[in-house]
Design a protein around this nucleic acid. Sequence first.
DNA 1: TGAATACGTTATGTATACAATAGCGGGCGA
DNA 2: TCGCCCGCTATTGTATACATAACGTATTCA
Lengths: 250, 250
Amino acid sequence: MAEREVDRSISQTVKAQLALRDQILSGALRPGERISELQAVETTGASRTPVRMALVRLEEEGLLEAIPSGGFMVKAFSERDISDSIELRGTLEGLAARFAAERGVSARELEPLKECLAAIDELLRQVPISVDAFSSYVTLNARFHAQLTELSRSPPLIRQIDRASALPFASPSGFVMAQSALPEAQQILIIAQEHHRVVIDAIENREGARAEAVMREHARLAVRNLRLALRNRTHLDLLPALALIKTTTD
Amino acid sequence: MAEREVDRSISQTVKAQLALRDQILSGALRPGERISELQAVETTGASRTPVRMALVRLEEEGLLEAIPSGGFMVKAFSERDISDSIELRGTLEGLAARFAAERGVSARELEPLKECLAAIDELLRQVPISVDAFSSYVTLNARFHAQLTELSRSPPLIRQIDRASALPFASPSGFVMAQSALPEAQQILIIAQEHHRVVIDAIENREGARAEAVMREHARLAVRNLRLALRNRTHLDLLPALALIKTTTD
DNA sequence: TGAATACGTTATGTATACAATAGCGGGCGA
DNA sequence: TCGCCCGCTATTGTATACATAACGTATTCA
């Protein structure tokens, strides 16, 4: 239709990708559901070509799965998939921390991490933590992890970590959500903060093995707490992209 | 290995993707070079839509890089990028081995790996190894790594390892090539084979940490030998996708 | 003479038309 | 009544036309 309203400030492909990702993560599209291109065209406002490009990107991102006979469906994840993804990310971040420690990092480069650390300390001083403060925590934590990843100075590794974070439950905010979906949330966040402190110290002292170990422990903590949270069914609404978990046990 | 003859029954998108990847890996397209869609349409025989889909997929694969002003260019890699990619893959395979060991693997599932192991032993008995035998080795080694990865039973991890292998120098055959591009090739392959033996043993005995450690050592061996080979400039023609290495040091 | 601007060309981004295929439903025959 | 087959429809795969933005070149003015 000629009267299609076009937003020229952003490419149609990116617009479609963002809109579709939002639909998937919000649960508007259920896992296993086939995505209709035509329907996507209507909901995103882009035409078929950019929609198709977005679908391909989302497939590569891991949110969609190609159907052999054609088209795409929303990918479904098991609980095991999720905990594996978290551990996978922790392993990659461990490698990043090791690289940073072994290759050396200047004091100036560590400064932003320390600022993050201090800011989080400030937030955690509140007992109990407010909703706003928790929201800030999520942002700061994600920034901490991103900056740590950057310190590895390894583009292939950074790229891979970014890819691993595409799955929302494997992202740093996913870590936090998993940890916070428990009554002992604040206690857990304090332990996580201790991990952050140790990894900075290890990098400063160029202890690669220690830096790596603590990041892996960090992830294992998140995995344990995710499992607990899923068992207890506590605050599950906090968990990002819970909609992606397939309910049927196979 | 990529087959030169393209089946007309496969989709145009896949055809274009294979053709373009082949052009990149063969060095017909130089690193940093912009890929012209029109030119790609001519060389691949597909029309612009499937070519664009292929370009997006190759970008996600890591072989191409999006140009901010539009279009794609062939990605260029530094020597450091390559060794990092190998170590990255080793780390992921280490995690896979750990998962396999911790989660338990039946004797029947280990059988194919042991067959691979025995077949490689047979090949290595030749001194010096023939070109044909070496070619078989590359195939068998890739199969060994693929089967080991599968034993983790972790779809997210398997997926990530596959992604990490998209870069040709980080694939199992890339491992082998890096190791073999040295005069001491046969000696090195025997050590690598010993790693294979240990990882199977560790998985059988459910020793996760040992299984993980040996796979990481396996990768570090490849990294060391790659560096040596690049220093010595020996048999560099064997290294897959050497064309992707950028010559200029930044 | 150099720099800046304007215009033209070319390539990419987007939209849509066309083709092919798979899935489904109805009808017909056993 | 059940099952198979044929045809229709809906959706994806492909091709191409159109729009737009970027880059290069040439010309003009300072």
